[in-house]
Design a binder for these strands. Structure first.
Length: 194
DNA sequence: CGATAGATCGGCT
DNA sequence: GCCGATCTATCGC
């Protein structure tokens, strides 16, 4: 059924963060065998007022953002949820916003307490709950267990737009998604391609 | 449908 | 104190 896995290497992350955010669409992300295909991302970097590292201030929370490419940055959002970023170097990172559920559906449904496929991983907090991601994975390498990242086989159609849920840097077009995927956290407003 | 309030806590002013 | 890179339930049209 599934194509042979094409593991992602550290070099994948060592390029401009917007490029990585696009390239991650269609990539499979699993944590201990549970996960799916990335369908929505956002990019953040140190010059970005919406970023946790804006101004270069290093804190306990954002320390992982300053790590080497292919490091996980996990932070708590609104005191309740966890959110996962993939660090790309120079204090830049890609926020994973939505997955198409593929592996370990049973575990995901249990953790999320819902049978609705579209509510399992469609949102940064939701997907972390579904995959069991917490701050215990903050600062951990993405290139080994419990993470498994592998390239997709097709070249996906990418949609882009402004980011969600922020109050600064609101005009930057740094949100990317798999065109018309039913698993997006929200639909894209306009139909700007590429 | 869209709008909004509440949960809950670390980091910052 | 205040405010979020969120989610859910609930209210109103």
């Amino acid at each position: 059924m599934s194509a042979k896995p094409r593991p992602i290497s550290r070099n994948f992350f060592a390029r401009p963060v917007d490029d990585v955010a696009r390239a991650l669409i269609g990539v499979t992300l699993d944590v201990k065998g549970v996960g799916g295909i990335i369908v929505e991302t956002e990019s953040y970097d140190s010059g970005d007022p919406a970023s946790h590292v804006f101004g270069g201030k290093r804190t306990l929370r954002n320390a992982a953002m300053f790590g080497s490419p292919a490091t996980a940055y996990v932070y708590r959002s609104y005191g309740i949820h966890w959110c996962l970023n993939l660090v790309c170097g120079d204090a830049s990172a890609v926020l994973i916003r939505a997955l198409e559920p593929r592996h370990g559906l049973r575990a995901m449904r249990t953790r999320r307490d819902t049978d609705d496929l579209k509510k399992l991983c469609s949102g940064p907090g939701r997907l972390c709950q579904a995959l069991g991601i917490t701050d215990r994975l903050d600062g951990v390498s993405l290139l080994q267990r419990p993470f498994a990242l592998s390239l997709g086989s097709e070249t996906p159609e990418i949609q882009s737009g402004v980011r969600i849920g922020i109050t600064k840097g609101v005009d930057a077009v740094r949100r990317f998604g798999l065109r018309d995927s039913p698993y997006l956290s929200r639909r894209f407003r306009d139909d700007a391609s590429t």
